[in-house]
Write a protein that binds this DNA or RNA. Structure first.
Lengths: 181, 181
DNA sequence: GACTTTTTACCGAACGTTCGGTAAAATAAT
DNA sequence: ATTATTTTACCGAACGTTCGGTAAAAAGTC
């Protein structure tokens, strides 16, 4: 079993339990590999596993969310494409966000730089799309932030309330937040 | 040292490290009490400490956020009062939200009911205030959800980006979200 | 192609450390 | 003197990690 096959099995563990909650035992169970085997693939241990997961997810987002956002189609359609990618990424809000779960406790010390970079990359791309519709840079940035806040907040609501409706509405409201306002 | 003096010292540990990251050692350091002394006050151990923290925070919110929201003043002023309480509670976004941090991993299994109840209490109160301005129940509920999403999302953004501006803007936007729309 | 060597993938068992938690002794308060 | 509070010393279990070794695949040699 190669790393590329292992990493996707690690993802849900970190997502649902956070860094400190993602014990090597749980990671072992999730992958079907014994602890020692995990350490064969990731000599850097749990920290390297988390780093690999973050990198994998960043690439997934690049392909399924950021690239569609940068196509040459009209902004409204690009945002629709992004929304579709996001809905798949978060499984309609049922899967927690790695970004938010990894910015807690010890994990934040280890991965803050990576997380900040990913978030700002996303914000920058979104801001650019909005600017292309003729909106002032500062306002465009604010709308981009509003959109991300809505999504992240929706994920919290969904998790606590066991109801995916807020997330679906947040996704549906994205065009309005980003373009109409 | 009494429980009432200990609990406030426990709060920041759970807030910043989450339930699994809030080790008894850290709780001991934060309170200045040795482990065994903590167990004298909380025979139920770490779980009881977390439960006490949640209860304490719920009461604080009741007094400083929910009660001002239910006064007999006009809705706009009640929302202003709530905003003020929230800003103090989250220290302008610098302090993470217990609700979101405790809904991860094992902690969610232990406290889901409490968290869900607190969130829905808040949502219900907010919805009621909006309804009083003549808004349909369903729309009022949606606006209440939007407001909470904005705040929760802002907290994520602030934590990752080390910049409290998004939170301050989210707070400032509350009247518009809840009343103007 | 057959044989040897090296590398890869995996595992059982154990490592030292830290986890949450407890018993008994010491101290403080009344 | 009694009670309430804190501390020292300790426990089993789980933590992340490492060790020694096995089986199979890959690479190198003839």
């Amino acid at each position: 079993m190669s790393k590329e096959q292992v990493i996707p099995k690690l993802i849900p563990v970190f997502r649902h339990y956070g860094y400190e909650g993602a014990t090597v035992s749980r990671l072992s169970d999730a992958t079907g590999l014994k602890k020692a085997s995990l350490y064969h693939h990731f000599q850097g241990g749990k920290e390297q596993m988390a780093a690999a997961v973050l990198e994998y997810v960043a690439n997934w987002l690049d392909e399924n969310v950021f690239t569609p956002l940068q196509s040459d189609k009209p902004p409204s359609e690009r945002i629709r494409a992004m929304s579709q990618g996001l809905d798949k990424f978060y499984d309609s809000g049922q899967d927690p966000c790695l970004l938010s779960v990894m910015s807690v406790g010890e994990a934040d010390n280890l991965f803050h730089q990576q997380l900040e970079q990913s978030l700002n990359h996303w914000l920058a791309l979104l801001t650019q799309v909005i600017e292309e519709t003729g909106v002032e840079p500062e306002l465009a940035r604010q709308r981009a932030e509003d959109a991300l806040m809505m999504i992240q907040g929706a994920l919290v609501l969904v998790r606590v309330n066991n109801d995916t409706q807020p997330f679906k509405r947040a996704i549906a409201k994205l065009p309005q937040i980003l373009l109409d306002d």
